[in-house]
Design a protein around this nucleic acid. Structure first.
Lengths: 157, 157
DNA sequence: AGTTATCTGCAAATCAATTGCAAGTGTAGA
DNA sequence: TCTACACTTGCAATTGATTTGCAGATAACT
């Protein structure tokens, strides 16, 4: 249709919300920029560790947004690449803003006793992964890698 | 079944089941060698890929053992080190006989489309893991690592 | 402002996993 | 071989996370 000026990114920022590329991605995916979605992303921006749906719900104030809406939106946001899903094996999915939204690709080290979470930059070697993929004829291979152990504070017990 | 008689001393004991060290471990852990437990381990011996509780239940024949019993026993067997628990992120835990029971430590590559599972021998480098542990002061650090991708047969769709 | 496809809240439904309880069963010891 | 008792099991109910149906809002485009 019209000729969008892609280079003119710093034109005029939105007034209410700092919606850098969130808006773009949502609209590109034929999704609406709704109050709950902005609120969820705001909560994630303010937290360093990945949050569960319930934690996001609590952080929002229970009345601001239904829990089912959060569940639905986390799927949507994950699909659009705005958030990344993690599973620490404790029965509840956790979410973080994805790389393009501030954090870079990383894994986690979780204390099995108190739940304390540290980000870990080490990653499974890319060349190993390629070797695995080609050996078995798989494509689009990804990995999930999480570490667990006992944090310094919990070692006395 | 031509096996070198490794444990001839208990010959009169084991009539029905080839309970090599399973029995030992169970008894050492003050657990009983029950019909459901033997049946569960037998099912796992016959399958190459890790199974869910429900799959084990189905393989046993629904009437032979209650599903709750399987859930309880998988905990017990995991605790005693007879089976290893895996989580492929699809909402149901899966189990495999643990290393001492035939398989050695390994990870999995799962097809996101059809669920086909391949064993992967590559592992996260031990020296990296040690470095991570000491950097953050964690002890007893373990990792969970699973790969996913599209298997050869599913690439045409 | 009007239209419409997308959302949202609410409640009910799923699904995996856990638990209480009474009856059943291995095991060690007599 | 028999007995006692701790460990197990089946069954039903429960928990906790996640999903879904539906009717009433709402964002986005004209």
């Amino acid at each position: 249709m019209s000729s969008p000026c892609a280079q003119h990114q710093h034109a005029h920022r939105l007034i209410q919300q700092p919606l850098t590329e969130l808006t773009e991605k949502l609209r590109r995916g034929a999704r609406k920029v709704t109050v709950p979605r902005q609120a969820i992303l705001d909560v994630l921006r303010k937290h360093a560790s990945p949050l569960t749906n319930k934690e996001i719900h609590a952080a929002l104030g229970k009345e601001d947004c239904d829990l089912a809406t959060i569940y639905r939106n986390m799927h949507t946001l994950e699909l659009l690449g705005l958030v990344r899903r993690y599973d620490f094996g404790d029965g509840a999915a956790r979410f973080e803003l994805s790389a393009e939204e501030g954090s870079s690709h990383h894994h986690h080290l979780v204390c099995t006793h108190c739940g304390f979470i540290v980000e870990v930059d080490e990653c499974f070697p890319e060349e190993f992964q390629s070797a695995i993929a080609s050996r078995h004829g798989f494509t689009q291979v990804q990995h999930r890698l999480e570490f667990s152990g006992r944090c310094p504070k919990c070692q006395s017990r």
